[in-house]
């Protein structure tokens, strides 16, 4: 295990592509581009650009850190799938880091980490309540300090730093962190009654 592992962290769980490159504890480079769409097209060139301007190639990496949400489902899957592909292609570990972990990284406890969600909602873990999507107004009644996501580039730094602490201990493959089940309605078609005793001979 290298003393100063090279770790690439990235996140597309909201309307941006963010990434950071760490050598050991040192931040080599960080970047963020805001975008509502186009993350799937932009992510890999952005990561490649970050490596290149720091004088590295993909094969120099020791591990990948990827944000797993909660957040935008599609955005999270873009990063998680890319991280899994990179891990396979480079034969290095990929570490999934939740948004809550990335927000709480190096923060004094107790505190409440909060991810903004659309329509005045938040994702949060509150004392005694499992992680869930809830109304922002619930934060008015908390006694602990509330910490929101840092700016995305620093968020990516935290993801990379957490990955650095975990990558050597055989982490599970990164998986999206969903707080809601998939929207799906059960089938409407009701099967007909089959009349068993009506031999029409």
């Amino acid at each position: 295990m290298p003393s100063k592992p090279l770790i690439l962290g990235f996140d597309t769980s909201a309307a941006y592509c963010a990434a950071a490159l760490l050598s050991g504890e040192n931040v080599i480079a960080k970047t963020c581009e805001d975008m509502k769409r186009g993350q799937a097209e932009r992510l890999m060139p952005l990561l490649q650009g970050l490596l290149e301007k720091s004088g590295y190639v993909w094969q120099d990496l020791d591990a990948i850190g990827v944000g797993t949400g909660p957040g935008n489902f599609t955005g999270i899957r873009i990063s998680v799938s890319a991280a899994r592909g990179l891990a396979l292609g480079l034969n290095i570990p990929a570490v999934g880091v939740t948004s809550f972990e990335a927000i709480s990284h190096n923060q004094p406890s107790p505190h409440i980490s909060v991810v903004s969600a659309p329509r005045d909602q938040i994702y949060a873990i509150l004392p005694g309540i499992d992680a869930a999507q809830m109304d922002r107004s619930i934060l008015d009644h908390q006694s602990s300090p509330v910490i929101f996501s840092p700016d995305p580039a620093n968020f990516a730094i935290n993801i990379a730093d957490i990955a650095r602490s975990r990558y050597a201990s055989a982490p599970p493959p990164p998986a999206p962190y969903y707080l809601r089940t998939a929207d799906a309605a059960p089938a409407r078609d009701k099967a007909p009654t089959i009349l068993e005793n009506a031999p029409e001979l």
Binding site: M44, R77, S81, A83, G85, A87, N91
Partner: peptide, 13 residues
Amino acid sequence: LSGVMCAKGIAAG
């Protein structure tokens, strides 16, 4: 998207 991103990751790596 999952297929394309995974393929890009493997191809880059």
